[in-house]
Design a protein around this nucleic acid. Structure first.
Length: 156
DNA sequence: GCCAACGTTGGC
DNA sequence: GCCAACGTTGGC
């Protein structure tokens, strides 16, 4: 297996949890992901040290707000077992958890937020399959290639 | 706040 | 296993 660092994008609604919140707490268990594809990327694809772009969604100016790193291997999301949690899943048990997460560590805020509007102008370079701009895609965790990572950061 | 696109659920 | 109904996402 390759030991090369991988890259990812993770979305968050800044009203709920922003890059500033991540800076404040330094490291955060990325809980609440309830999509199987996104879970699989965290559980099966991510390794400690991988690069993460933090994207602000569902807000006035959506876009890439900062950088983080994967800070743990995947482990069960404890909120799935908490009946008081918004993310409670009655079908999950401690023996057979459904949802996994990784810890995400703050690295830095971008010098400026890279707006979705500008990212869309790079569709030719990023490729039609890029999950952020692919039509209809709502994935909240997905891979970014090294080339895409470099291109996106060049917009900073 | 609207709504298109998508994922999940559950009856049959 | 189909698919209608429902819930969610997220740009606008």
């Amino acid at each position: 297996m390759s030991t090369r660092k991988r890259y990812w994008m993770m979305k968050s609604e800044p009203d709920a949890f922003s890059i500033d919140d991540l800076e404040r707490v330094s490291t955060e268990p990325w809980n609440g992901v309830r999509n199987y594809q996104a879970r699989n990327f965290m559980r099966d694809g991510m390794r400690v040290g991988d690069g993460v772009m933090i994207y602000h969604s569902n807000c006035k100016v959506p876009g890439i707000a900062g950088l983080a790193t994967v800070a743990s291997a995947a482990y069960p999301d404890s909120t799935q077992l908490d009946p008081k949690s918004h993310y409670f899943d009655p079908k999950a048990t401690p023996e057979t958890p459904r949802w996994f997460l990784v810890d995400v560590a703050f690295e830095r805020k971008l010098k400026r937020l890279i707006p979705l509007e500008e990212i869309k102008q790079q569709t030719d370079e990023l490729g039609e399959g890029f999950a952020l701009t692919a039509k209809g895609s709502r994935l909240s965790v997905f891979p970014v290639t090294a080339a895409q990572w470099k291109l996106l950061l060049s917009l900073e």
